[in-house]
Design a protein around this nucleic acid. Structure first.
Lengths: 135, 135
DNA sequence: TTGCTCCTCACGTCACGTGAGGTGGC
DNA sequence: TTGCTCCTCACGTCACGTGAGGTGGC
């Protein structure tokens, strides 16, 4: 059974991030945990937002962009203009991500052949001089 | 015809990076341009290294890792241990890159469906209230 | 008292970006 | 003198990492 309010430790384990990251996200106004004295208590809302934050990061959005997206998200369904501009932002991000993936594919292919080349050199190499210190 | 020694401006255009980046790489001892008074002159060696640096970055190596690789590279064919450890480093990097690409693939698929969903919402949305300021 | 988790500064890191203010030769 | 490219600080940015030093309740 999962509790609705998590301590920073529970929260960091639940999402596999450091406590520092959670404090940082609060400072950036991405999260707004309640307080019990000094202690933070992350509510269900924080947990839902954290899921969206991590998804946004996987999508390559900056934290500031994620903050804006969460804001739109928060405003319920928002207005047409907001949704449309969000979609545009996402579509641009998609193009960038596809470019990055293609770059990465090329880089992977390149690196593989470089490794193969290295191994080739390695197994045709004469053993290096061994310093004659065997008195 | 290409000159063997390039000014910082020529060099930055040739490799599509900023002058600041070139100065930064010099500070990090990745490049070592000659000097004509204060001015930097990037030699053929710098140009060759720059190619390797950018390739390393595409491979996801940090500048410090690239510096080490260049060092090995510089020591001629180096010894077997060095080459073997370089290959190991590269193999690890390869695994990370493949993981990243797979993550990216998932993220791309996700984002596409999110965009589709957004567009779906958008075209089934009743037009928002228009403020009645038409006096 | 010890141990645990939590807290707040606040400086460090990485790879540069971005002025500010100045030099040198056509 | 103006304009161009170059230079060196040196602070800013982004997303945190990493101590230092302190608190609170079992």
């Amino acid at each position: 059974m999962t509790h609705s309010r998590l301590t920073i430790r529970q929260m960091s384990k639940a999402f596999d991030v450091t406590a520092r990251t959670l404090r940082f996200y609060e400072a950036k106004e991405l999260l707004s945990p309640e307080r019990l004295g000094q202690r933070r208590l992350f509510t269900h809302r924080d947990q839902a937002r954290m899921t969206l934050i991590l998804r946004g990061k996987r999508f390559g959005f900056s934290l500031e962009e994620i903050r804006q997206l969460l804001e739109l998200y928060d405003g319920g369904t928002g207005n047409v203009v907001q949704i449309a501009s969000t979609i545009k932002m996402a579509a641009n991000r998609l193009l960038e991500m596809e470019r990055r993936r293609d770059d990465l594919d090329v880089a992977i292919t390149d690196l593989k052949s470089q490794i193969a080349e290295g191994e080739h050199i390695l197994c045709h190499l004469t053993p290096p001089e061994i310093p004659a210190s065997r008195n």
